[in-house]
C-alpha cells in the first residue's frame, strides 16, 4: 500500500471568472522509503501539491490519504497532530528559530508534542549526529553555514520519526556544494533511514538524486518517470564501484 495517495486532487484559487486552477485532478502515489521529486516550471502547482499532501492547505476537490488516513476527515486539531507525528517538513529558508541552539531547534517538534525535554534533547542529538552535526550541537543558526542549517532542519524533520518528509526547494538557498550535500542527505533519508521523501525542486541536478520524477505543467501532471535502473549505456560508459 502506498504511504501517500492523492485522488483527483484539485485546487482552485478564487471564484467565478477570476478563478485559477492551480492543480487539476492529480493522482499520485508515493511508496514508503521512496524518494520522489516534483518538477515543473514556476507556477505549475508543484508547491501547492506539496502543501496539500502535507495538510498545510485544503483541496477544493479530491483527497489526500496519508498512511491510510484521509486528511479531509480530520479537523484542524487532528490535522496538526498528524502533521507533527507522521510528516517532517524541510523548507527553502530552513525556518530555524534564531535564539535556539541546533539541539533545541531539532528537538522542537517533540517538545511541542509534550515529550519531556531531556528525552527530546537526547533524540535530537542522535539525529544531529546522523546528519553529521555531532560537533555543532550548541551552535545557533547564525553560527552555522547554510548547508549546516539545512541539515539541522532535516534532523528536526526526522526527530519525531515520521514516515514522510516533505521538502520544498530544500537547496534553493544553497550553493552547489551544499546543495549536493543536502540532496545526498535526503537520498539517505529515503534509502538508509526508510522514510519517504517528496521534494519540490526546479533544479535538474537536484531532482536527479530522486528515484522518480513527477512532471507538472499548468497544474496538470504531464509525466511520471522512474530514474532507476540506469540505462545499459550509462553502466557501460562509467567505471563501476
Amino acid at each position: 500500500m502506498s504511504l501517500v495517495q492523492t485522488q483527483n486532487l484539485t485546487k482552485i484559487y478564487g471564484k467565478g471568472e477570476t478563478a485559477v486552477t492551480a492543480l487539476n485532478r492529480i493522482n499520485v502515489q508515493v511508496a514508503a522509503a521512496e524518494f520522489v521529486a516534483i518538477m515543473g516550471p514556476s507556477g505549475c502547482g508543484k508547491s501547492t501539491l506539496l502543501y496539500l499532501i502535507g495538510g498545510l492547505d485544503r483541496p477544493t476537490d479530491g483527497r489526500v490519504i496519508i498512511d491510510g488516513q484521509a486528511l479531509e476527515g480530520l479537523a484542524d486539531q487532528g490535522l496538526t497532530e498528524l502533521r507533527r507525528r507522521k510528516i517532517g517538513f524541510v523548507f527553502q529558508f530552513f525556518n530555524l528559530i534564531p535564539v535556539l541552539t541546533a539541539v533545541e531547534n531539532a528537538a522542537l517538534p517533540l517538545t511541542l508534542d509534550g515529550v519531556p525535554i531531556k528525552e527530546a534533547r537526547i533524540r535530537a542529538t542522535e539525529w544531529l549526529q546522523r546528519v553529521g552535526l555531532g560537533d555543532r550541537l550548541r551552535s545557533r543558526p547564525d553560527q552555522l553555514s547554510g548547508g549546516q542549517q539545512q541539515r539541522v532542519a532535516i534532523a528536526r524533520a526526522l526527530v519525531a520519526e515520521p514516515a514522510l518528509v516533505l521538502a520544498d526547494e530544500p537547496t534553493g538557498n544553497l550553493d552547489t556544494r551544499a546543495s549536493d550535500e543536502v540532496a545526498g542527505l535526503l537520498r539517505q533519508v529515503a534509502n538508509t533511514w526508510g522514510r519517504a521523501v517528496v521534494m519540490v525542486t526546479h533544479d535538474p541536478r537536484i531532482a536527479a538524486y530522486a528515484d522518480r520524477i513527477i512532471f507538472l505543467k499548468d497544474g496538470t501532471m504531464v509525466d511520471e518517470s522512474r530514474l532507476t535502473p540506469a540505462t545499459a549505456e550509462t553502466t557501460a560508459m562509467w567505471p563501476g564501484r
Partner: peptide, 21 residues
C-alpha cells in the same frame, strides 16, 4: 522532447549516484 528529457534524467541519476560512491 519529454522522452529525451526522461532519458537524460536517468543518465543524470546514474552518474549522480555513482559520484556519491
Amino acid at each position: 522532447i519529454q522522452t529525451q528529457r526522461v532519458f537524460l534524467y536517468r543518465e543524470l541519476h546514474a552518474v549522480t549516484v555513482l559520484r556519491q560512491s
